[in-house]
């Protein structure tokens, strides 16, 4: 929860019922979603975030209209079963709270497997994300992924898209694969708007069976600079 002084300030600023307070900025929170939370879907995470924002007393801006609601925007949905230490969420606020304070408040309101890592006021849009870095670990350490499988000039495989299953060459959507030193692989995959390669496809190309998936970073267009 935010410190009491901040809370008081907030309620004093509160607009009378029926009028909404304008948004003064977009707080971007970087958080991790690990452990058993990998089985919580994107939609359920959204609901969890909504109540957590409220518990943490973040001065969230509400949409106007018939059914006012919090507007929370996630950078990149995480596939069910995957963990991450680099999730980003944008929340419009009606007052500029100190980002460090917000991180602490959120950690008090999050369940244990959800941790706020950092926060700042956003100056970019999520459309600036083009790549995401993943680590894939085999559940059975004997099943080492074979990186040479990615060396072919073309990697034609079936991917699921909104319009059904398609066979395409995913080679241009994969870069910088390397052993991660722990029996798994680190790999960067396309993660742009309307052009996302699911880590499960990469795992399939690598011949991996049961595995753990961890997203470690999101990058700008150059594929190496961290997106903030």
């Amino acid at each position: 929860m935010l410190p009491e002084t901040e809370q008081k300030e907030m309620s004093a600023e509160k607009a009378p019922a029926g009028q909404s307070t304008p948004a003064v900025g977009t707080l971007r929170v970087k958080f991790s979603k690990t452990g058993m939370l990998r089985y919580i879907s994107h939609l359920d995470l959204l609901r969890t975030m909504q109540t957590a924002m409220s518990r943490a007393r973040i001065p969230v801006w509400y949409t106007e209209g018939f059914n006012p609601h919090q507007k929370l925007v996630f950078a990149l949905p995480l596939p069910l079963g995957a963990e991450s230490v680099c999730e980003l969420i944008d929340v419009k606020v009606t007052r500029r709270v100190d980002p460090k304070t917000a991180v602490d408040a959120l950690n008090g309101a999050f369940p244990p497997d959800l941790r706020a890592i950092d926060a700042w006021y956003a100056e970019t849009k999520f459309t600036g994300i083009f790549w995401a870095r993943y680590e894939l670990y085999p559940v059975d350490p004997e099943e080492k992924p074979d990186l040479s499988l990615l060396d072919k000039p073309e990697l034609v495989t079936i991917v699921r898209t909104k319009s059904g299953e398609k066979e395409i060459d995913v080679k241009p959507k994969i870069r910088d694969p390397e052993p991660n030193g722990k029996g798994g692989v680190a790999i960067t995959l396309r993660a742009a708007v309307n052009d996302i390669l699911n880590p499960d496809v990469a795992a399939r190309l690598l011949g991996m069976g049961e595995r753990r998936t961890l997203r470690t970073a999101v990058f700008r267009e150059d594929g190496t600079t961290e997106f903030r």
Binding site: R55, L80, G81
Partner: peptide, 14 residues
Amino acid sequence: RSVSKPGRYVGGEY
């Protein structure tokens, strides 16, 4: 991974 709505079995809620 193979069952419907695995979120009901994992616990760990706030």
